[in-house]
Amino acid sequence: MLYGITARYDKYQQRFVTCLSQSELQVLAADWARSTGRVATSIELSRLADAALDDQRIVKEAMLQGLHKSDPVIIQRLLRDAEFLGFEGSAREKIDAVLAMDIAAGDEVIRRRLIQILQHNIANAEDKIDASDDQLQAIYTENINIGAVPARLSFEHIFFDVGKTDAKARAEFALQEKLFDASTGDVFLEGNQFFALTPGSLSSKFGHDFSVALNQKEAPMGEWFGPLRSAYGFHLVRLTERQAAYRRPVAVLGPELESIWQKKQQAQHWQDYLEDLRHQYRVECHAPN
């Protein structure tokens, strides 16, 4: 009982962060200016300082929880630090020596790793609750692009190169005379048959105007028509399949919607956890330097 109280008191004693010194604030401001090309406003500087304090809390809390003792990346990093500083002994002794110097929290790699681990742990701390149907539906409604399947067209074409003479006339003649063999026309590098192209793919391969023309509803199915103008020349086209744009239903998208919902939940857990940490840690300020 007494041990438990003592341990909690010890942790309480250790749960503090040090407010940023003037020189640290200056470094933050200088980094900001270097990154953004302008001076930080007082509000921005205040937020930078708050974020730095949050980082201090997270790193300290992670170390209080002993997360640095079992992570291979941190262990490896501590050993590297020890080797670099010339410490002798077993791996455990080297690690202890580095930890005793209290430089681990100043190692950016260890700091980043601790933050990452704590975030992971908090995200997975609570029993996973599956989203309800209503919650999935809400995600589906909020994210209108999820599950959107664009229209697709499959077709064959005969190409008439504008770099050669009378491209349009030759195309019209081929249509009139029903000369629907690819060799009637000119070479189109990507061939004469295309499968399930979206409007975007059509634009990439033929140009935007051609894509728009081919996606018009009145374009006939199964019959040769044209010539249609593209960025490359004229084309006689025969549509072989048209798949209308649609949106996959919620039932099909369940795992993806669930994943987005879970991610939101995890983000919320993390924010709540951070808020708790802010209350648990006192901020100690020393005389200005």
Binding site: K205, G207, H208, Y232
Partner: peptide, 8 residues
Amino acid sequence: AKMDGGRS
């Protein structure tokens, strides 16, 4: 070689 047809 064939040029990029472009985008929307």
